[in-house]
């Protein structure tokens, strides 16, 4: 099933990229680029809609802000976010048998923290006049968070009372690396939409003294490496030229 969707995704991405190239060829004659100018033309500010939608659920609260600046085909990217989860650890739904005995447990896990990612995207639709993007990128992520777990394990022998623990890791810091890919499409004037798919790997944490860290804000479940992430994003692009022209206009009017 996953393979089918991956193939469909690949076809869509290629089609989207191809369509962008066709559009630009038909509608606007691309300007000949003689020299590559590494001068930023705008700042794009965006947010992740998936995090906002997920925040309606009690088990997750989060938001993310993304900023990118263009330098020819390269985009410098900074992302900053907040992530708080509350996860039930009950396993009473698992089916146990004599061949597969399951220790019964119930409890709850909470974490809360901020994360920061920075890196670069490379745009493969350089000739697109609207600066639409199909990109590949690299990120380095840093997270600082606190977490706690409270749980009860039922012992295998009825002679003993259940084991209960309430543990906290107060100040955990961690890092990871991401390979990203996605689309940024101009929808209307300065409004942009896009997605970023993330392949996260090499997670590491420090400062977790009481139990092994479980869920790192910005990364996810630490024991799952590589881990996947996905953002469906909405951006607003601030054009430097327009900003500068607007300032000049205002200054001439005041004179």
């Amino acid at each position: 099933m996953c393979r089918f969707f991956s193939s469909a995704l690949l076809v869509l991405v290629i089609t989207a990229a191809y369509c962008q190239q066709q559009d630009s060829a038909v509608s606007v004659k691309p300007k000949r680029i003689d020299t590559v100018k590494y001068i930023p033309t705008g700042l794009r500010v965006g947010t992740d809609l998936i995090a906002l939608v997920r925040s309606r659920d009690n088990s997750f609260k989060g938001w993310e802000l993304a900023f990118d600046v263009d330098l020819a085909r390269y985009y410098l990217v900074v992302e900053y976010g907040y992530w708080s989860t509350r996860q039930s650890l009950d396993n009473f739904q698992l089916i146990a048998s004599t061949a597969n005995p399951v220790l019964r447990t119930y409890g709850v896990y909470n974490n809360e923290g901020y994360y920061f990612r920075f890196g670069t995207d490379i745009n493969f639709l350089l000739k697109d006049p609207e600066k639409n993007m199909f990109f590949l990128g690299l990120r380095y992520g840093i997270s600082n968070f606190a977490e706690n777990v409270a749980y009860v394990n039922q012992p295998s022998s009825p002679l003993f009372s259940p084991f209960a623990a309430n543990l906290a890791n107060g100040n955990v810091s961690g890092s990871w690396i991401e390979v990203t890919s996605g689309l940024r499409i101009k929808v209307y004037k300065a409004l942009w939409m896009g997605y970023t798919a993330r392949l996260k790997f090499a997670p590491s944490t420090s400062g977790a003294g009481n139990f092994e860290s479980y869920d790192m804000p910005g990364y996810g479940i630490i024991s799952e490496a590589p881990n996947w992430g996905f953002n469906y994003q909405l951006f607003w692009r601030f054009d430097w030229d327009k900003l500068i022209k607007g300032k000049k206009k205002r200054s001439t009017l005041t004179k």
Binding site: C2, L12, V187, M193, Y195, E224, F230, Y232
Partner: peptide, 26 residues
């Protein structure tokens, strides 16, 4: 808008739940 949304929905279908392997013993 629809293209970006479709890609987003298709991509999330690849997320799978891990197996439950517990080796803890008392």
């Amino acid at each position: 808008f629809l293209l970006v949304l479709l890609v987003a929905v298709l991509s999330t279908s690849c997320f799978t739940q891990p197996d439950c392997v517990v080796t803890a013993s008392m």
